[in-house]
């Protein structure tokens, strides 16, 4: 286990040495909070890429402070940009199906991941989101940044209690 950090450092060095080399995905250590499957190239568990909270946070967290239909005031959501995640898993497709704990499924166009700045929010006002707080993952768009996002189509894509993403 002590070898892991040095291995990671070596891998990071390799990544900087040759950008074209995709970083091999580590195995999750903690509880798996997100499983990405479908048309992806970078996996760590068979056909799927599985992430624990730490792995996701390592990708790079982004904050979005915005109004939303679910809360009466402005909230700050923190999470991983969908774009970065899709790059990391080497996703190739046009849609991302987000599946919630209650098997509720929404379709997010791949273009939203690329263009809107949407994130997979894991923290609300700095606190980890538990299942009872619409956790572990809540798909959030920067609604206040553009009036076109303040629209039922985007609200409908904003699924909560998301645990799986399927790239198609």
């Amino acid at each position: 286990m002590k070898l892991l950090p040095s291995l990671a450092a070596l891998l990071t060095g390799l990544m900087f040495a040759n950008m074209s080399l995709a970083e091999p995905l580590a195995k999750p250590v903690g509880d798996v909070v997100l499983t990405v499957s479908g048309n992806i190239s970078n996996t760590n568990d068979g056909e799927a890429a599985k992430f624990d909270r730490a792995m996701l946070e390592e990708i790079g967290m982004v904050d979005i402070s915005t109004n939303s239909p679910w809360y009466d005031e402005v909230k700050t959501f923190s999470g991983v940009p969908m774009k970065d995640l899709m790059e990391l898993v080497g996703a190739k497709g046009t849609t991302i199906n987000a599946v919630a704990l209650n098997d509720y499924e929404t379709e997010v166009p791949m273009s939203d991941a690329q263009e809107t700045g949407m994130i997979l929010a894991m923290k609300l006002d700095g606190q980890d989101m538990e299942v009872r707080d619409k956790g572990p993952i809540f798909l959030i768009y920067p609604y206040d940044s553009n009036p076109t996002f303040q629209n039922q189509a985007y609200y409908a894509r904003s699924a909560w209690q998301v645990t799986r993403l399927i790239v198609r």
Partner: peptide, 13 residues
């Protein structure tokens, strides 16, 4: 937890 998260939204809007 899932049902709790539902009941939270009962108190709003």
């Amino acid at each position: 937890d899932i049902i709790i998260s539902r009941t939270i939204s009962f108190k709003e809007g």
